[in-house]
Simulated assay, not measured.
Amino acid sequence: MSPTLLRDVAIIGGGLVGSSAALALRRMGFSVVLLDKGFCGAQASGVNYGGVRRQGRPPEQIALSQRAHAIWPRLNEIIGIDGEFVRSGHLKLARTEVEMASLEAYAARVAELGLDLELIGSNQLRERFPWIAGNVTGASLCPGDGHANPRLVSAAFAHAARLAGADVLEHTPVSHVEKAPDGFYLSAGSATQIKAQFVINSAGAWAGPFAEAFGEPVPLNRIYPSMIVTEPLNVFMDVNIGAEGGGIYARQVERGNCIVGGMRGEPLAASDFSRPTGSGAVTIMNRAAALFPPLRHAYAIRFWSGTEGEMADRNPVIGFSRTTPNLIHAFGFSGAGFQIAPGVGEVLAELVRDGESRTPIQAFAIDRFARTAQSSRAGSVPEPIKRETAQ
């Protein structure tokens, strides 16, 4: 029988959130084991669209998004590669007057939060972005946003954590976690036993059962965002594109390939995995061709889909357990976790070290759904159990 691995922190889930937390914790001097049931960064963190945007996020996410915004230009320093990060700007299109009014209302709501949004009317849009066609009423530009390659970034954070001294155990699914007076005990893989003072549940779409095991069920569903990449084309798209109301997003990389999304795939029989649908792929490409004429005769060379966890209110769960000292949750990013993940990793490390974070995360408490149900029955909710004194 293998000896029990003794670590300060055990992290369940090796996506970008878990990997960046592992790296941040190692730089603070904590011993860390990072566990993933497959390859680190192979699920939602590595197969998403790659948008690095603050624009369009709920106001309660902006402080966290701004923290991550400061990390992205420093990727070379932090993980040894730039991850193909480009600060291209993010242009959000409005296709109707109602959508334009929504962009205007959002810009007013976040005006003091540092996004520096620029509202653009239809005439100016045609002048500045002549490659955009169709009935577009206007747009909102966030010039500091951009895009990156998730396949590179997610794996690089896990690699950097390993180089920093974290134990990174891939193909090691966690089968059991329990709390004892002297810490957490985890069973993983075929024979791995771990004792840790803290556990971080960053298991993405698979995080629900771990939360429920500690009496904290949440409305976490699975979604399957689907993407397409085209053959290399002459570079024409110089911003990351989104649309108010959804339905289409697109970006072009330096090699000329365009990544386009806006539909969802369908789960396979083993619902850990999914695949794009033919009808979805055709719909996305038709939408893209209508908006971007250079794509009208482009070949689509690859299609893919990934598995992501979505919360009912589309805000993630981040913070201490309400039931169990030293248990921290970070999951449910609802298809928008790529940009904020490096900031979340720093926040999680602060929670372990300090018991709190300098970035406000109260809106992401795991008990917010229970509070909603309880408020109708009256009675106050007790303060959360946070952390024990490290032994």
Rank of each mutant, 00 (worst) to 15 (best):
M1D: 08
M1C: 09
S2Q: 11
D8C: 04
D8E: 10
V9K: 02
G15D: 08
L16I: 12
A21V: 07
A24F: 04
G38Y: 14
F39V: 03
A44R: 03
G46T: 07
Y49H: 15
E60T: 15
E60C: 15
Q61E: 15
I62Q: 00
A63T: 13
P73Q: 08
L75N: 07
D82Y: 05
F85E: 01
R87D: 00
K92E: 11
L93F: 01
E104K: 15
A105I: 12
L113Y: 07
G114C: 14
L117H: 00
R126S: 10
R128Y: 08
W131G: 14
A139M: 05
H147L: 05
H159E: 15
A160P: 04
A164T: 12
H176E: 07
H176R: 13
K179G: 02
Q197V: 00
A203M: 14
A205C: 14
F210V: 09
F210I: 06
V218E: 00
S226T: 02
V239P: 05
N240D: 07
N240V: 00
E244S: 12
E244H: 12
Q252H: 04
E254H: 12
G256W: 03
G262H: 04
A270T: 08
D272Y: 05
S274E: 02
S274F: 01
S274A: 14
P276F: 05
A281F: 02
V282F: 06
V282S: 08
T283M: 12
Y299S: 14
T307H: 10
E308S: 13
A312K: 15
V317N: 03
I318H: 06
G319S: 08
F320N: 06
N326Y: 03
A330R: 04
F333C: 11
S334E: 08
G337T: 01
E346H: 11
A349F: 06
P360N: 13
I361Y: 06
I361Q: 05
F364L: 12
F369C: 09
S376K: 14
S380P: 04
P382R: 11
P382M: 07
A390C: 00
